[in-house]
């Protein structure tokens, strides 16, 4: 059958969430999907379902009421996933930084892979960020597929093979290398 992992890089699906932005970056993301910039030539398509998407585009500083939804959407997305913070507010909070209902950027709540600056980010920058995100997505996919050992070498004392202490914690062997 199809090797799904092989095609993930060729057609990543986008989930877009507005966490309190001014709509400026959101209409620029829409403009990216339009014929002039045409993000769809990279196989990217905008979807509303977190369970089918690979790339998470977030705009806006996180307001108190959107942060639960933001984390919820992030956790619903399947691994591997890439988070792209679009716009200065999503990166640092920008002009909304000290307002009473606003956090300072989305990376307080979810890990961010690519930061796209600008107020509002131009479509060229957003496309650049998404292409960068695709590389990270491929790298993450490879990392997930890497085999890892579950057991240490068995020890031999008095001619008896002892496997009692051979269980390995996940990642312990990698950390040694």
């Amino acid at each position: 059958m199809f090797d799904l992992k092989k095609y993930r890089k060729k057609s990543p699906w986008i989930l877009h969430y507005n966490a309190g932005s001014c709509n400026g970056c959101d209409i620029e993301i829409l403009a990216c999907l339009s014929p002039k910039y045409d993000l769809e030539r990279f196989g990217v398509i905008n979807t509303g379902n977190p369970k089918q998407s690979d790339i998470f585009l977030v705009t806006g500083p996180v307001t108190f009421r959107t942060r639960e939804r933001l984390v919820e959407l992030y956790t619903q997305m399947p691994e591997p996933k890439v988070v792209i913070a679009v716009g200065s507010c999503a990166c640092t909070g920008c002009v909304f930084r000290d307002m009473y209902n606003v956090e300072v950027g989305i990376d307080r709540y979810i890990p961010v892979d690519v930061y796209v600056p600008g107020c509002a980010s131009s479509p060229e920058l957003i496309i650049d960020g998404v292409v960068k995100g695709l590389e990270i997505l491929e790298q993450k996919t490879k990392e997930m597929e890497k085999p890892f050992k579950l057991f240490k070498e068995a020890t031999t004392d008095d001619g008896i093979v002892n496997r009692r202490h051979s269980a390995l914690k996940v990642g312990e062997d990698d950390a040694k290398d």
Partner: peptide, 14 residues
Amino acid sequence: GFVHRGVEKACTTS
């Protein structure tokens, strides 16, 4: 009210 940021207040304080 999801995207309430408090612009009016900030305009008078900061």
